[in-house]
Simulated assay, not measured.
Amino acid sequence: MDAQIGTTLEEFDSRFDIELKLLLEGVYLTYQHDFRQYAVASLRRRIMQAMVQFDCKTVSQLQSRVLHEPEVFAKMLQYFTVQVSEMFRDPMYFKAIREQVVPVLKTYPSVKIWIAGCSTGEEVWSLAILLAEEGLLDNTLIYATDINADSLKTAETGIYSVDRIADFSTNYLQSGGRHSLSDYYTTGYGGAIFNRDLRKRMVFADHSLATDSVFSEVQFVSCRNVLIYFNPELQERAIGLFADSLVNRGFLGLGSKESLRFTRHADTFTEFARIEKIYQRVLR
């Protein structure tokens, strides 16, 4: 009996993975969004959640809805991508930017920063506040990109639930914030609305690390907790884009569980702030 169950589970897993590949191929051909090189284990979990959400018994049923109902695909983006963030997440990362990266950025006549996979924008607004406090924001342009249109809309508004503000404020102070986070937002109708003056230095745009190319030369790239959802091939592609976009001695920031070790681009960077996962591009 146990052997029969094991065989059944193996067959289920095999069929699931086949159907998952077909779904990803169909999404790419229909909508030009490429998730084919995302980490399979993570995708499995999220596609199973989507099947429950859309009342589909198989991935094939989900595929039919996604390919024939664009509104379903729009909702599916939250399952293809992970949209989890908070302001000043990993405060020591932002403290390292404030104390070690910003002094170097100040040596440039103007600065361009790329936040790749910006999700709903918490890191974008955090960095804008930090740069404003360091007197660098007016001289900086922040490119914030993601593939999820709904997330980009949220990011542009700079409006977040009031019940999240306490955690944001704690992170802000731990990151070396010079004032009170409340200096940068107003509240109303259950939301905290961040200062529109910060928004003036931001450009939000759709960009896929899987299919798109470099669009600007920048001094700093921050792409945190995105690469962990890619397979090795796509990780290499993304890091290559960052390397190509960075000026000599430009900076790359990654998530706490991400690293350039064992990638073919490892020699392209040196460790600048090892614990905080900030790297510096070597001279070309």
Rank of each mutant, 00 (worst) to 15 (best):
A238W: 04
F215I: 08
R284T: 14
Q61M: 10
H207F: 02
R44Q: 11
Y28H: 09
Y31R: 10
F16L: 12
E122K: 11
N139R: 12
A3L: 05
G177N: 03
V247P: 07
I193M: 06
R15K: 03
C223W: 04
A166Y: 05
I239K: 06
M92N: 03
Y108A: 00
V27T: 05
E276G: 01
Y184Q: 04
E10C: 05
E217H: 14
L22P: 03
G188Y: 00
R178M: 00
I193Y: 09
D13H: 04
N225E: 10
T107D: 13
D183T: 09
A192H: 01
S60N: 05
A3P: 00
R44P: 04
V66T: 01
D2N: 14
S42C: 03
N139Q: 14
A39D: 06
H68E: 11
S151Y: 07
Q4S: 10
A132V: 03
V52R: 01
R199D: 13
S60P: 08
I165S: 10
A74V: 07
G188F: 04
R264H: 04
R201N: 00
S60D: 15
F269M: 09
D206L: 12
I97W: 04
I239V: 12
S119N: 00
S182G: 09
T263R: 09
N171F: 09
E69T: 14
L252E: 04
V59C: 06
L29V: 01
E217W: 13
P103C: 11
D183H: 14
S119C: 07
A243S: 14
I147V: 15
L234R: 02
F204L: 12
L241S: 01
D183Y: 13
E86I: 12
I5N: 10
D150K: 06
F220S: 03
S256Y: 15
T268L: 05
A39W: 10
R98P: 02
P70E: 15
F230R: 00
E233K: 00
S256F: 14
E133R: 06
V66S: 02
